[in-house]
Nucleic acid binder design. Structure first.
Length: 464
RNA sequence: UCCUCCUUAGCUCAGUCGGUUAGAGCAUCUGACUGUUAAUCAGAGGGUCCCAGGUUCAAGUCCUGGAGGGGGAGCCA
């Protein structure tokens, strides 16, 4: 057998030729009769299978028995015009080698459909399903498109730290990082933990955001983005939260809130367009199997402007809404899921960018408006998944920023390096965070965030 | 973390008022079929009824506690 093998994605585009080619992959199904067997082979290069036609008389019974759902094989043969419906070409097998048998009595994946809940329990095998093949290829394509978009637009990829000594990021509970012996933790006289002998000589955690360090990069490189893992130790049990997820955070010097909105909208539309143009087969499958409106919804989003309005305008609309809300609507209240959904799904029926939130419900670093009440925050709200992006113009004034830090009781000494950017050549700047898995939820039409990441980490679940 | 629903064959589920030997479809296996498309047809095998207690002559079914999962909410991306 020759060593070079073709990807099935390529083979399916070939015209029938007289030369033999070699393919390698995993068997999805085998069916047929005494004379001929049809093996559907998938190698992950595409959602589509290559049909391998096996003349039973040309192969030993022992070999044919080993070709079962899940088995890994190599097949060599000629590509011919298919006599059956459903595919234009197929392989007439001349030689087959079985790399790995797969006992059908115990292999959990069957020819029939499985629930997503069951597949989560076998996350080591679910990449072999049509659904997760499609999701993982889509995930790759979106990752690539993110880097391409930023690279093509003059952004630099900045690697912000995963282990952070800063506990002032204020974006939720953090996972501690320590090498201290948990059975014998050194204590100070006041019973607090003494971190002097810990690896870093201080308390450290996994990052909840690369933003603060991202701002440092933007103050030198002009436009940066981060794209890395992010960790939140919140006990969140929802279809929209993970303890370990990937986040994209652009940060741009000389951007104001309007530029930030333009960037967010253009970026999201670029990514969705990229998916439609490069992942057609996978999206068609997801559209057919999970969400019949998926492709129409993706097209709608790229063809229409996002609705932009201020928090204050949003509150007015909600106050006039002919709908009872569980949570009261008033100026100063944080918007609940039901409020966001009303604006996006009922009132405007399109993505919404809300800006200028009350300062008391937003983070310390956001630029304060002249009204003294609001800050230049920006949330991008999408149908079905809610908040997909959260960002803001940043407060560039040293005086205003330190005053806000003091008001909130954050120790300035913990943020000395961040505050110095406002002391030394400060500049207006803005940025946002995009949850990568939330983007994938939207682009794939999946309903649960655990189904758009290969190995989800959630409370009480770190298997695989 | 709160509310709510669920857990029975490999998978998806049914199981009446607490009653005698726990069922179906699919999957698997065996057989049939000269080109199938989640092939079809016939037959067979397959059960810790989530776990631990309790009530009862009798528990898959009722009660208590626990574990795991789904949906909703909060936190957020």
């Amino acid at each position: 057998m020759k060593n070079e093998h073709f990807k099935i994605k390529e083979v399916l585009t070939l015209q029938p030729v007289d030369t033999e080619i070699l393919v390698k992959g995993w068997v999805r199904t085998k069916r047929g009769n005494k004379n001929v067997a049809f093996v559907a082979l998938n190698d992950g290069s595409t959602i589509n299978n290559l049909q391998i036609v096996v003349e039973v008389s040309n192969f030993s019974e022992d070999l044919l028995k080993k070709i079962t759902t899940g088995a890994c094989i190599a097949a060599q043969g000629k590509i011919v015009k298919s006599m059956g419906q459903g595919q234009s070409v197929e392989m007439q097998a001349l030689e087959i080698e079985v790399y790995g048998e797969c006992d059908p009595e115990v292999y959990p994946l069957q020819k029939k459909g499985h629930t997503l809940e069951f597949l989560r329990e076998i996350a080591h095998l679910r990449p072999r399903t049509n659904t997760f093949g499609a999701i993982l290829r889509l995930r790759h394509a979106m990752s690539f498109a993110i880097h391409k978009y930023f690279n093509d637009n003059g952004f630099f990829y900045l690697h912000t730290p995963i282990i952070t000594g800063s506990d002032a990021e204020g974006a939720g509970a953090m996972f501690q990082v320590t090498t201290l012996d948990l059975k014998n933790i050194p204590l100070n006289p006041d019973k607090s933990v003494n971190y002097e002998d810990d690896f870093f000589g201080k308390s450290t955690n996994l990052t909840v955001s690369g933003q603060l360090e991202g701002e440092l990069g933007a103050m030198a490189l002009g436009a940066i983005y981060t794209f890395g893992p992010t960790f939140r130790a919140e006990n969140s049990n929802t279809p929209r939260h993970l303890a370990e997820f990937w986040m994209i955070e652009p940060e741009v010097a000389f951007y104001e809130i309007k530029d930030n909105m333009d960037l967010a909208e253009d970026f999201l539309k670029y990514l969705i367009t990229y998916a439609l143009e490069n992942c057609e087969d996978d999206l068609k499958f997801l559209n057919e199997m999970y969400d019949k409106e998926l492709i129409d919804r993706l097209k709608f989003v790229i063809e229409n402007d996002f609705q932009r309005l201020t928090y204050t305008e949003g509150i007015k609309i909600l106050e006039k809404a002919d709908q009872k809300f569980e949570f009261p609507v008033f100026w100063g209240a944080d918007l609940q899921s039901e409020h966001e959904r009303y604006l996006v799904e009922k009132h405007f029926k399109r993505p919404v960018i809300l800006t200028d939130y009350p300062k008391d419900i937003k983070a310390f670093y956001m630029k304060q408006n002249d009204d003294g009440k609001t800050v230049r925050a920006m949330d991008v709200l999408f149908p079905k998944i809610g908040e997909i992006i959260g960002g803001s113009q940043r407060e560039e004034s040293y005086e205003k920023l330190t005053q806000r830090v003091d008001e909130l009781g954050i120790p300035q000494k913990d943020l000395w390096w961040y505050l110095e950017t406002r002391k030394f050549g400060t500049a207006p700047h803005a940025g946002f965070g995009l949850g990568f898995e939330r983007l994938l939820l939207f682009v794939s039409g999946m309903a649960n965030i655990r189904d758009v990441i290969p190995f989800p980490r959630t409370p009480k679940n770190a298997e695989f």
